[in-house]
Nucleic acid binder design. Structure first.
Length: 703
DNA sequence: TCATTTAACGTTTTT
DNA sequence: CGTTAAATGA
């Protein structure tokens, strides 16, 4: 109980019945939760596997597990993977339950998990089969419509029935076909993990009761961001004792576009009578200046609970607003402030975070940081497991594990190239579909197929032999690392990577890190699960570096100094919320609140008068959120309307190049400009050939 | 029929 | 600029 305030203590001691903890930003939520779990283990003699704890990210789960581990036994060292096995994200928990009990709703135990890319791949396949032009409806749009439907537990038939315009009917058809293909591949997508778990618990009382008996205490973090399926899962898992504890803050609900519904937290007391409500309102993170400005912003929202955060950390420096001329000046201003403070030894690089609304904004910032030689790390963006070479390896592993996964098979059937093109693949798959054999068995019997060239048959047969061998390794209990090493060898994948391009080396290194990552896992299923569910917010590397990420990814984190950039109408709030209605605008405002409350001592807000967006230059007004803060902020810099400004070249339509100029390109070496058409610059390269580049993107350098 | 070359496209947030 | 789809040539 040491180091806890009275409200936090009562949250720890309240060990029976429903408990709602309304935890404001920076109110010591994680600490309270860790102490509460430790208390249950020690004073209520619960076993670590009798507690179900759901967090928002894998990283949050890891931190919590570590904290509980240290608290209970004052142990040091690595926390074993088996400790508190039921601590993780909703998706992670569902995977484990389905693996164990999925048979009851006819889910094969060796199902694979499809991510967003896989899902869109399968949607494209479905559209092709249905002869729907993907120019007309974007696969991405269909994907999100299907996702929304699934989260509302709607079937393709429901969608078809409710369709009131032609596109919707097409989408419903794609949805139906997609589901058929997905089932055939023995795969579940992210939404299925939740929805199938709901069905499992709803339709099988004996299984429901089994889990209810196992979980003596259920604990849900970030409850304001739960969606309908997650809400249902929680309801089914809580037993008669109703030992459920949820933590959340409606002011920080920022995932409604993903189906999250913060009325879940507002209605908790109604759902679980006799709830004890504890409010944590003392903020231990930010200065009063930061907190007051954030409070000004959030108070403009109509739909919200009423609370008042307070701090005794003192007034602190005022929140600063910096106006800049364009995104490049904005970036160098941020980089410059960081460089100065580090040079004065006032701060370390890792004290700083730069937060933005969308990933595309990171490019200008990265450039400025590189110019000033400031080390930085990007959270989000391209995930490690999204890289081509890693996805290839995972596709190989999947097909070995789940030989019905035709999507993964299609991905790697000709990688490395082995003379099997689109037509051969299509013919093979058509034949294989008719035989009822899985992909690997069909490869083994490929000589019986008709319509394939003998060349294709030989290549496919050889691939089948490799798959068989790897499959045998898997059955004999080989480690994932051994299997990967072997498959790299038989496919000569490393040779394939060495294509002479500058990125080849990096790709090989990535394969290396994959192999060392994989050593932690005892078996393949465990690794495939982890690889599918790892999120971009999870890879927080160490080291003394500035952190760059989206506002969404910053949830739950804190930094001594925070820069929020791009506070402009159309960027933040994003232009897409304008015609979406007031509730979307309120969500943007909550996102602003979340960003501001990440800051401990200093908060800087910047905006640019002019910005390159969607390929062209736009001029934005200052964000309304700055006006919301009233006189809680200090305006510091005015933009420099620079004659000597380096970016002024793009403001005039005139490019700073002429035909005949010699230039340096980053990717293709030096060359001479032979034509200019608007922004399109044609260059005759010294290495031979010509190249047409967009001067707005290619950073051409005049020689 | 396959592999290479060339043209087109892109940007909200993510488990 | 990077990626992906279409177009071209062997």
């Amino acid at each position: 109980m040491e180091g806890l305030n009275p409200a936090q203590r009562s949250a720890v001691c309240q060990t029976s019945g429903p408990l709602l903890i309304l935890a404001g930003a920076g109110s010591g939520k994680t600490k309270t939760v860790a102490h509460r779990i430790a208390y249950l283990l020690q004073h209520e003699s619960l076993w670590p596997n009798e507690i179900l704890a759901v967090t928002f990210t894998n990283k949050a789960a890891r931190e919590l597990r570590e904290r509980v581990w240290r608290l209970t036994e004052e142990r040091g060292g690595e926390v074993p993977r088996s400790y508190m096995p039921w601590m993780g994200t909703f998706h992670g928990i569902c995977v484990r339950m389905l693996r164990q009990d999925g048979k009851a709703i006819s889910i094969q135990p060796n199902y694979v998990i499809y991510d967003e890319d896989d899902r869109q791949g399968l949607i494209k396949q479905a559209m092709k089969e249905l002869h729907i032009d993907k120019q007309q409806i974007k696969p991405r749009t269909i994907s999100s419509v299907i996702s929304n439907a699934k989260n509302e537990l709607k079937t393709p038939e429901d969608m078809e029935a409710a369709a009131n315009y032609p596109n919707m009917r097409s989408i419903a058809k794609v949805y139906a076909r997609y589901e058929k293909l997905r089932r055939g591949a023995g795969a579940l997508d992210f939404d299925d993990l939740l929805i199938e778990t709901v069905c499992l618990l709803r339709d099988h009382p004996e299984i429901r009761v089994k889990w209810q008996q196992q979980f003596k205490h259920v604990f849900i973090d970030e409850y304001q961001d739960t969606n309908a399926a997650q809400y249902a899962i929680v309801k089914y898992l809580v037993n008669k004792e109703q030992n459920i504890c949820v933590v959340g803050d409606d002011w920080q609900s920022i995932y409604s576009w993903r189906g999250a519904d913060f009325t879940n937290i507002l209605n908790f007391e109604r759902d679980y009578p006799n709830t004890t409500v504890i409010k944590l309102e003392q903020n231990y993170r930010s200065t009063n200046a930061i907190l007051a400005a954030a409070q000004m912003v959030i108070s403009k929202n109509k739909v919200r609970t009423d609370k008042k955060l307070w701090t005794d950390l003192g007034e602190g420096a005022p929140v600063e607003v910096h106006a800049t001329y364009d995104e490049s000046e904005e970036a160098s201003l941020v980089a410059g402030r960081i460089a100065t403070q580090v040079a004065m030894k006032a701060r370390r690089y890792s004290d700083f975070a730069i937060l933005y609304r969308m990933n595309a904004q990171s490019a200008a910032l990265e450039r400025a940081l590189r110019v000033q030689r400031i080390p930085y790390q990007l959270v989000g963006g391209v995930r490690f497991y999204d890289r081509k070479e890693i996805k290839d390896i995972i596709a190989y592993l999947r097909i070995i594990y789940q030989p019905n996964d035709r999507l993964s098979f299609s991905r790697i059937v000709n990688v490395p190239t082995r003379g099997i093109g689109a037509t051969s693949l299509e013919r093979f798959l058509t034949w294989q579909g008719g035989t009822g054999m899985n992909v690997i068995d069909a490869l083994y019997h490929v000589h019986e197929a008709d319509g394939l060239t003998s060349k294709a048959k030989t290549a496919l047969g050889a691939l089948g032999t490799h798959f068989r061998e790897l499959q045998t390794m898997l059955q004999d209990g080989a480690t994932p690392a051994d299997i990967i090493e072997r498959l790299l060898k038989v496919t000569a994948y490393r040779d394939y990577l060495r294509d002479g391009t500058p990125q080849a080396e990096e790709r090989e290194e990535n394969i290396g890190s994959l192999i060392s990552d994989v050593k932690v896992f005892a078996d393949l299923p465990e690794f495939l699960e982890e690889a599918a569910l790892i999120s971009s917010a999870d890879n927080a590397a160490g080291g003394d570096k500035v952190t760059l990420m989206t506002l969404h990814a910053a949830k739950g984190l804190e930094f001594p100094v925070v820069f929020m950039v791009g506070l402009e109408e159309g960027i933040f709030p994003h232009s897409r919320v304008y015609d979406a209605g007031p509730s979307e605008l309120e969500e943007e405002r909550r996102l602003c609140y979340v960003g501001m409350t990440r800051a401990r001592q200093e908060l800087h807000l910047t905006y640019a008068r002019s910005r390159l967006q969607f390929g062209q230059r736009g001029y934005n007004e200052v964000s309304r959120f700055i006006a919301d803060m009233g006189n809680q902020v200090a305006a510091i810099d005015q933009p420099t309307f620079g004659i000597d400004h380096q970016e002024s070249e793009f403001v005039s339509d005139e490019l700073p190049f002429d035909i005949g100029d010699r230039v340096r390109t980053t990717a293709f070496g030096n060359g001479e400009i032979i034509d200019i058409d608007g922004l399109a610059v044609t260059i005759r390269l010294d290495r031979g050939g010509t190249k047409k580049l967009n001067a707005e993107y290619a950073r051409l350098e005049k020689l």
